[in-house]
Amino acid sequence: MNNITNGTTATPVNELWDGILLLSVFGTIDSARSKEMMETMLAKVVQTSAKVIVLDILGVAVVDSAVANHLLKIGRATKLIGADTIISGISPEVAVTLVELGIDLEATITTANLSDALQLAFDRTGYTIEQSK
């Protein structure tokens, strides 16, 4: 375990591919965590000139309206500095809960799994994946 109190980030942002960042989130997203996620992501976008961020929330236990609000804010902030956010890992339970809660994720692009998100990210950055013969 990392020492998360000592300035070390608990949510590492990985450069998955040229122009594509991946942030996998586990556990709970409270306001402190979301602030840290936003700061880390913005810094990494600027540093790498990323075009797309994949934010995987499969490991997030509960997506209530506060969490959704945090995710929307992160999406808006990254959009402002020049990168689109794709939220992946929307489990069936989370999908049902979001609909029942009445949450509108606005223009946010969401996918059920990481591979769909990756496909979109490649489209966005102009890459085509091909299987070699």
Partner: peptide, 23 residues
């Protein structure tokens, strides 16, 4: 758009909508 500007705007509940942006 600078990081600080973006974070501040988001905290003010600003919604960029469907504008095109780049770093």
């Amino acid at each position: 758009i600078r990081e600080g500007v973006a974070t501040a705007l988001v905290e003010l509940d600003f919604k960029p909508g469907d504008v095109q942006t780049a770093t």
